[in-house]
């Protein structure tokens, strides 16, 4: 019983991490049709800068931890916005070139981060509470997973409020459905592209700092590792659907953990099988709209 509880809650925590990365990917694709392979670079840079800030303030302190999350969000948002303005916008409506430039940026970013921070993973410390556990139904749950879950819930709630209650949110929802018609109403939809990139970058930045604490290291490859699963989550949930990304994040991560625990460490394999099944049975994803 305790093993099952531990597996499920770790799955939820991992799903929360996947959601933080996948939410931005999904919104960006939904609105702009861009598969953003540079998303992992947003995450990695935010993690590195967040780590540096926490080191400067005091890695063990809650102040350093919270400030590193905030800084990570800002760094992710700025990096993403600059990427959209400088690299994506000039290639408007040229989707293949846009994808290629994000692939190139992701490779270049990893090389740059390796050059700045070295190729070896850097061990990360945080508040002591994060390395402790909390007992739930006989299972000792590492506290870092609670933080991941809370962060994802806060980000999801914030995104829902933004998308439902603000004019820009409304434009983004409408743009995901029919970008051309938004333009035909006299709205410069390209402005919302930068905003969506920034929001996605901020979420990835928060995810980067928290992933660093969850894995207790930061490296240039951190973003790339998570990006693979974030893409799977985005496709399974339905490209462009925030709700789909949230559901698929939990589904993929819990399935992965259950398989790792009970099926001899086959979690990654099972996730790929799930992806294949979804693509065969429901190509648009769980919540996506059929083309």
């Amino acid at each position: 019983m305790s093993t099952l509880v531990l597996t499920l809650i770790i799955g939820l925590g991992l799903g929360a991490l996947y959601f933080l990365v996948a939410s931005g990917l999904s919104l960006i694709y939904g609105l702009m049709g861009v598969l953003n392979f540079a998303h992992g670079a947003f995450l990695s840079l935010s993690a590195f800068v967040g780590w540096a800030v926490a080191q400067a303030i005091g890695a063990d302190s809650w102040g350093g931890f919270l400030l590193s999350i905030l800084v990570g969000a800002v760094v992710g948002a700025v990096f993403a916005a600059l990427t959209e303005l400088a690299l994506i916008r000039p290639l408007y409506e040229r989707h293949i070139e846009q994808v290629l430039v994000t692939v190139g940026l992701s490779f270049a970013a990893v090389a740059l981060f390796d050059g700045i921070w070295g190729t070896d993973p850097i061990t990360v410390r945080g508040p002591v509470w994060l390395s402790r556990t909390t007992a739930v139904l006989g299972a000792s749950i590492p506290n870092k997973y609670w933080v991941l879950i809370i962060a994802a819930v806060v980000v999801l709630a914030g995104l829902v409020v933004f998308l439902r209650r603000t004019r820009y949110g409304m434009i983004i929802r409408a743009g995901v459905e029919n970008r051309g018609m938004v333009t035909a109403l006299g709205i410069d939809v390209r402005r919302s592209f930068t905003l969506v990139f920034a929001i996605g970058g901020a979420a990835a930045g928060i995810g980067g700092v928290l992933a660093m604490h969850a894995m207790t290291y930061v490296s240039a490859g951190l973003g790339g590792t998570l990006l693979i699963f974030a893409f799977i989550v985005t496709v399974v949930g339905g490209l462009g659907s925030l709700t789909g990304a949230a559901i698929a994040s939990v589904l993929v991560a819990v399935l992965q953990q259950v398989a790792n625990t009970y099926l001899g460490g086959t979690g990654d394999f099972i996730v790929v099988i799930l992806l294949a099944v979804v693509l065969l049975v429901r190509p648009a994803g769980l919540m996506g709209k059929a083309a």
Partner: peptide, 12 residues
Amino acid sequence: FAGLTVAENLAL
């Protein structure tokens, strides 16, 4: 915009 309400369609 199918996912938006009538009011949201008009407000946009």
